[in-house]
Design a protein around this nucleic acid. Structure first.
Lengths: 255, 255
DNA sequence: ACAGGGCGCATTGTACACAAAGCAGAGTGC
DNA sequence: GCACTCTGCTTTGTGTACAATGCGCCCTGT
């Protein structure tokens, strides 16, 4: 039932983070990636022991990784009942997108002021990688890299709290995209990303913000958050209930 | 050298959080409170074992509390070298305040739309408590309650990601205030809080935002983030260096 | 006397063992 | 026949022992 996959010596490819506690980061990155690529469906139970077996580490490490994922909102941690992959409701998705609009606007304005040449070069490189992933048909990597682009943009804005918040928002957005994206492929047009970089490099705040808001509109419109998402939404709610069930009506938000 | 303070049966008074894992929350709340009331100076080492002794719990619990505090930015977690009370630099403080302005503006606008009568009643009650604390001369409680007011306002805005972000910002702001506030007492005029509630209840978005921005200005102006903060700033930087870098003998304040 | 290296202590990181809390199933009473 | 409870198992929560890392001190060599 649970065979050990690899004895954990494999390096994390994308390096979401990779300084000190490599074990934590590896486990974190793998689970995160699995969620993004929908190998872990929303509502899936994440047993500590099973994950420990799989990654060849003790529950202590798993627990830390889950805690981190929970804090970023991609995993739901229920006291005494374990962790499950978060299944954001349509309402939660809307809230995330509202917050993102807000933050992306601010980040764009700040990036126009503070982005260095090096920042811009890195951003361009990321768009390249993103395009490559999509052309390879690697949807999961594409979603992840697209998210990392927005995160790098936040870094260019040079505001630590916003970077941290953006990390959380991007993670949740990725999960939402994985859950709600309509059939089509390219969810985040790298073309728009490139135009955005150009506007920032030109220090044209109005244009940059305009492009970013347009970009947000596009992402929004590609999701089935409205009426037509009935079946998808129902499925999400269903799996959620299967996990949560009990006599408790609804934890809604654990905060 | 380290006597056990209390065997941990004392309830957390203000209830920053208090549902399930009470132990975590108690430890978290006590450390947080100690930091706010400046019984724990920035840069102070937070030894896991010492804290465990003090609170009568194992390092496991302490570690979780520290992790949580670290995530909120009031504690700095250095791999293999333990935790210290964060000592935000002036630059970091500026970043926090910039982010807060942004978020408070959005929260205010949303609260005008979404705040219920119950929300408003709770907000008014919190201002009362805050005023009481200040009149009692309980500065730490005052700072905390003032922060909780802004957090409750975020809850009235009904946007989960913003609430979470606001929690982090408020915590860090509290630390900054504790560190940089100029000698005077009332740092957050509850009067302004009350006016803000009135504007929100009147659903006057422009007025509410105007008041909030004014309020932010006031908080800003009460801090010594500019030139005159030389000594305070120097001290902060100094303690920071003592902890982070060298082989220096002793941090000014010990646990 | 000072610089460099090695050694011992203190503290954190990790794994594991035990305790507690859910959850599922079978059995029993109404 | 249905519902309720009691019991056993599975899974999480917590404490603790051991390993690893960092840090300070002392010793030695120049």
């Amino acid at each position: 039932m649970n065979e050990q996959l690899q004895p954990l010596k494999k390096q994390p490819r994308a390096g979401k983070a990779g300084r000190s506690g490599t074990q934590d980061d590896i486990v974190y990155a793998h689970i995160f990636e699995a969620i993004l690529e929908q190998r872990l469906a929303p509502g899936t139970k994440l047993s500590e022991e099973a994950l420990g077996e799989i990654f060849g580490v003790s529950r202590t490490i798993i627990r830390r990784a889950l805690s981190r994922l929970a804090h970023e909102g991609v995993v739901l941690l229920r006291p005494n009942r374990g962790a499950v992959v978060a299944s954001p409701s349509v309402e939660e998705a809307r809230q995330v997108f509202l917050a993102r609009r807000l933050v992306e606007k601010a980040i764009t304005e700040l990036a126009v002021v503070h982005a260095t040449a090096d920042d811009l070069a890195q951003l361009r490189k990321m768009v390249q990688d993103e395009r490559d992933s999509f052309s390879r048909g690697d949807r999961g990597a594409g979603i992840r890299l697209s998210g990392e682009f927005h995160l790098k943009l936040a870094e260019a804005a040079k505001n630590a709290p916003l970077i941290s918040f953006q990390r959380s928002l991007v993670s949740q957005t990725s999960l939402i995209i994985a859950q709600y994206e309509s059939g089509t492929r390219s969810h985040c047009s790298y073309d728009e990303h490139m135009q955005l970089i150009d506007a920032i490099e030109a220090r044209d705040a109005d244009q940059a913000v305009h492009l970013m808001m347009h970009h947000m509109d596009h992402i929004d419109s590609k999701l089935n958050l409205d009426e037509e998402s009935a079946s998808d939404d129902l499925h999400a709610v269903f799996s959620h209930l299967l996990q949560t069930k009990g006599k408790s009506p609804r934890p809604a938000a654990k905060l």
